[in-house]
């Protein structure tokens, strides 16, 4: 299994770069992964989405529906795409340390 090194720590990732163990996730991981997703610096809006996704995952064990994500964070889908150019599933979930979501979002 491939690994990546972020701020001196090694993480196991899958073929798309999603980290395998969500328990290892912290803010440094999100900052480290951001550059690969075309984000120069994580703003407060980014953190709002990332923290919501991570807390939802730790509570329910899965990624939320897009509708729920938009409703809870107050951003519409277009804004989320502007924040995370690769999209809510590939970009935001990766930064929040979630495993790769199923389906083709």
């Amino acid at each position: 299994m491939p690994t990546i090194t972020l701020s001196g720590r090694q993480f196991e990732v899958d073929e798309d770069g999603f980290i395998q163990d969500p328990a290892q996730w912290d803010d440094a991981v999100a900052n480290g992964l951001a550059a690969g997703e075309g984000i120069t610096a994580l703003t407060e809006d980014h953190w709002k989405v990332i923290r919501y996704l991570h807390s939802y995952y730790t509570e329910f064990g899965s990624a939320p529906m897009i509708r729920k994500l938009c409703k809870e964070t107050g951003f519409n889908l277009k804004t989320i795409y502007q924040l995370f150019p690769t999209g809510p599933a590939k970009g935001a979930c990766k930064l929040a340390g979630l495993p790769k979501p199923t389906g083709c979002v």
């Binding site: 997703e37 075309g38 889908l77 795409y81 150019p85 690769t86 999209g87 590939k90 083709c104």
Partner: peptide, 10 residues
């Protein structure tokens, strides 16, 4: 068939 993820193009 499937979809291609292109950054910035949803």
């Amino acid at each position: 068939g499937g979809y291609v993820s292109l950054p910035g193009v949803a």
